[in-house]
Simulated scan of single mutants.
Amino acid sequence: MESVLEAVRRWRRDDTPCALARIVHTRGSAPLPVGAAMAVAASGEIVGGVSGGCVDGTVYELCRQAIDDGRTVLERFDGSDASPLSQGPTCGGTSEVLVQPVDDAGDTLLGRLDEMLRGREPVVLATALTGDHAGAHVLLGADGAEGSLGDDLLDRHIARLATERLGRAGAVTVDTGAPGDPDGLTASHRGRSHAPRVLLHSFAAPTLLIFGAGAFGESLSRVGAMLGYRVVVCDARPALNRPERFPDAHEVVTRWPHEHLDTVPVDETTAICVLTHDHKFDIPLLTAALRGPAGYVGAMGSRRVHAERLELLRAEGLTDRELARLRSPIGLDLGARTAEETALSIAAELVAHRRGGSGAPLAGLEAAIHT
């Protein structure tokens, strides 16, 4: 999403008209999840995508149309003869895509969203999908809400729903006119139009704590940022821990690793990668990490080093259950040799852990690829 927002901001700064397309609902084997985005400029430039390619061409034309006529449209792609793309998504799933021109109001809020994402601030973008104000946004962060969906009662209702989702990454479409609506939104819209469907897209970057400022940490910081993590690099050695080596890191800290870990918030979305490969750093750090709530704890080292490390950790009083949480040697078996390849193998394990994947080759599996 960040690259798409960056492109929108650049085009708007250059007075180039543009449109934004986002997946707002999926069913079945859709190639990309809700929230995936594509932006198109009047010049024809494209950034991002909303499919594996099967509907991007049609969405591109819808974006060009939105730039020309200024209208917001919600299109459903399901492969039926009635869908805009007659051949349909080749994966067999269904996707709904909202296409809207970016006007001044949208530009302001999307620019603010871009800033918050770059700062790794938790934020929810609410977008009306139907109704008189389709395409309107409300942006809610820790400091309050900005924007409007065109109705005060609806804005208050959405602000409450968005607050509940703040800090929880993901996207969901809600029907604000559903029966049993506690705010009476259906009645308030009677005689005008139905209460709209609204997309609530919550952005909350998980934290990747990289301990070890060597070549492996340098490569992993780049990949981690690309995957949407808030990357923090920590090392006690100032000669290695130079910020210019880690331009994609949100923070670079020179401190003993276990001391820094004691000062930062950690939850089940946090990933801790111990790349220092030195017992004097690793043992106090892993002792604290394995007793904490981090969802992923991995450590670099050979199998011999891992065996030595386990004995030292047992001497610190860690239980077999705590030690079972340690992923070491870190990463998936890709046959990696270089620092970049090793970072890729670690990142692959992070994705598999975060998304519940097996790490096995897809060619040998019968399970669904997209869920």
Rank of each mutant, 00 (worst) to 15 (best):
Leu290Met: 15
Thr26Ser: 01
Gly292Lys: 11
Leu312Met: 14
Arg165Val: 03
Val40Pro: 00
Glu341Ala: 04
Leu332Val: 15
Met116Arg: 14
Ala66Gln: 08
Leu85Gln: 13
Ser80Cys: 08
Val99Ser: 03
Gly57Asn: 02
Thr254Val: 14
Gly92His: 11
Cys54Met: 08
Ile283Val: 15
Val198Phe: 12
Ile67Leu: 14
Arg165Ile: 03
His250Ser: 15
Arg190Lys: 09
Ala66Lys: 03
Pro243Thr: 13
Gly356Ile: 05
Cys63Ser: 11
Asp183Tyr: 13
Ser328Glu: 07
Val232Trp: 14
Met1Trp: 05
Asp152Ile: 15
Leu199Thr: 01
Arg245Ser: 09
Gly144Glu: 04
Asp262Thr: 13
Ser219Leu: 05
Leu326Asp: 11
Leu261Thr: 04
Asp282Asn: 05
Asp114Leu: 12
Leu153Cys: 00
Ile346Ser: 03
Lys280Tyr: 00
Leu62Ser: 06
Leu117Ser: 02
Asp56Gln: 06
Asp15Gly: 06
Thr338Ser: 15
Leu290Pro: 13
Ala19Thr: 05
Thr127Arg: 04
Thr207Arg: 15
Gly144Asn: 07
Ala288Trp: 07
Leu129Pro: 04
Met226Glu: 00
Ala348Thr: 05
Arg76Ile: 09
Ser302Asp: 08
Gly106Asn: 12
Ala368Asn: 12
Leu334Arg: 11
Thr26Met: 06
Val351Thr: 00
Val4Glu: 15
Thr108Ser: 01
Gly357Arg: 11
Ala36Asn: 10
Ala142Arg: 15
Ala41Met: 04
His157Met: 03
Ala42Trp: 01
Thr90Ile: 13
Arg13Ile: 08
Leu344Tyr: 04
Leu140His: 04
Ser345Glu: 05
Glu164Met: 03
Ala7Val: 02
Asp282Pro: 07
Ile346Thr: 04
Asp143Thr: 14
Ala169Gln: 02
Gly359Pro: 06
His370Tyr: 07
Ala339Trp: 06
Ala204Cys: 10
Leu208Thr: 08
Arg112Cys: 09
Ala236Trp: 14
Phe203Tyr: 10
Ala213Asn: 03
Ala205Ile: 01
Arg230Ile: 07
Asp278Cys: 02
Leu313Ser: 06
Leu140Ser: 05
Glu218Tyr: 06
Asp183Val: 06
Gly214Glu: 07
Ala195Lys: 02
Val123Thr: 13
Gly357Leu: 14
Val47Gly: 07
Tyr296Cys: 01
Ala105Tyr: 00
Leu85Ser: 12
Thr127Asp: 05
Thr270Gln: 03
Leu240Gln: 09
Glu244Trp: 06
Val102Asp: 00
Arg13Leu: 10
Ala136Ser: 12
Leu62Pro: 10
His250Ile: 12
Ile46Phe: 08
Arg168Val: 09
Glu75Val: 13
Ala236Cys: 11
Leu290Tyr: 14
Ser29Trp: 07
Gln65Ile: 09
Asp235Trp: 10
Thr342Lys: 01
Arg71Cys: 09
Gly301Pro: 02
Ile346Val: 15
Leu365Phe: 10
Thr90Ser: 06
Pro101Thr: 13
His25Met: 12
Leu261Asp: 02
Val102Tyr: 01
Cys91Val: 10
Gly191Val: 13
